[in-house]
Design a protein around this nucleic acid. Sequence first.
DNA 1: GGGCCTGCGG
DNA 2: CCGCAGGCCC
Lengths: 264, 264
Amino acid sequence: MFEARLTQGVLLRKLLDSMKDLVQDANFDCSSTGFALQAMDSSHVSLIHMQLRSDGFDHFRCDRNLSMGVSLNNMAKILKCMGNDDVLTMKAEDQGDSVTFMFESANQERISDFELKLMDIDSEQLGIPDTDYSATVKMPSSEFARICKDLSTIGDTVLIAVTKDGVRFSTNGDIGSANVTVRSHSNVDKPEEQVVIDMQEPVALTFALRYLNSFAKATPLSNQVIISMSKELPVVVQYRMEDMGQISYYLAPKIEDEEMDGDE
Amino acid sequence: MFEARLTQGVLLRKLLDSMKDLVQDANFDCSSTGFALQAMDSSHVSLIHMQLRSDGFDHFRCDRNLSMGVSLNNMAKILKCMGNDDVLTMKAEDQGDSVTFMFESANQERISDFELKLMDIDSEQLGIPDTDYSATVKMPSSEFARICKDLSTIGDTVLIAVTKDGVRFSTNGDIGSANVTVRSHSNVDKPEEQVVIDMQEPVALTFALRYLNSFAKATPLSNQVIISMSKELPVVVQYRMEDMGQISYYLAPKIEDEEMDGDE
DNA sequence: GGGCCTGCGG
DNA sequence: CCGCAGGCCC
């Protein structure tokens, strides 16, 4: 049997909200190491990989590996019924056909349990190679979200170019073009505002903004986002939840990645 | 070449937001005296005239007179990408086919530049005679906006009648009629709440509320609005930006301007 | 039902 | 000044 208790139940709700627009149905994989999901988005262009470590839960028990297929939309609907400060407990039998979400209000005055039917879902588990990236940018997640949204009003794709002391986001479209440059800097007092660039070699890749905007739905999960890039490899857009795990999005670059010539 | 730097970049965004619903495309006229626009609204009923004086900018350079045709909607989209306290710099080459908007965050940590393509726009520059108006009302802009919005729920037109000690806004429609009277008063402590009436002779004119409601989009630009009227002449609805300039809207009165008989 | 915009709170 | 929530529009 599987049972996991999360004091900050709201975390799981935010995770679902950040995934449900990209993926319809997916398997949650429960094992002694934790609670994880890997899935391609519906158009098979991008990949989500989220993982919550067992030691991040307040209680975690998983007797046998379990793969629970759910409609992320329905699971998100159920999690919306959770109070913002509720403690969440998930439970599933080894051979069961459902998973139960129990919400306890802080003072135990209200206890809810929602049962969600499981579904059989084919899933190809892709191996994600552990790469050393040419460049990694850590920056405020809200700023990344804002930039992707702003650039979407101009163009459909963004060229992300990392140099030693900054990262430039560029796009162009019918009405004109745009560049946003964020400079590397740190602020001891406000670590959540820091922009840290770890660069082995300069890299510049082009991506579809609509996917980056979907990824940015995860902004509420973390103050910072980590963007890792290497030439010709998918970018990784990662949001880390302290002591808990992370959600990472992978998206292949557009070929023709040196400059945006607007002739796409 | 044209280059203008505005510490309060947000001013220009508010200006665009206040014009884009009335006018699609228009020419910005840059000269050594400032940055101006004059345009009829799309239905050729009302006229906008905005002007930012060169000395209101933190830096202003305009080597030759320049007329930049832009889609106000697209320019507004770009200005929405500006941070709320970014410094704005506009740049255009004399013979260029685009204008660049540069946004600098307060700490220079983020620098954006957006290039907007220019368009050729026919514009008839109308002469606006400098009139001595029979009556001028200065009142809180938010109050004027509220009155126009409220009266719109009753009728389509408003009779604005100015007397020595007050201004009356009247309308009527299918469901009934309404009058709002605002009395002249001043408050030394709160000049933004004053209602000042400067009247040579009483005047009462009728206007289409839908245009006044559009004009009221400029409310965020100024605490006060100045309404100037003379018999049979277009009303002027003006918002002044201290040390910077103003935006004025002109709208011809409906004939049959003495009273609203509800038989229109 | 989803996205955008406005208003309110931290 | 930024973030979150609710309401309105598409």
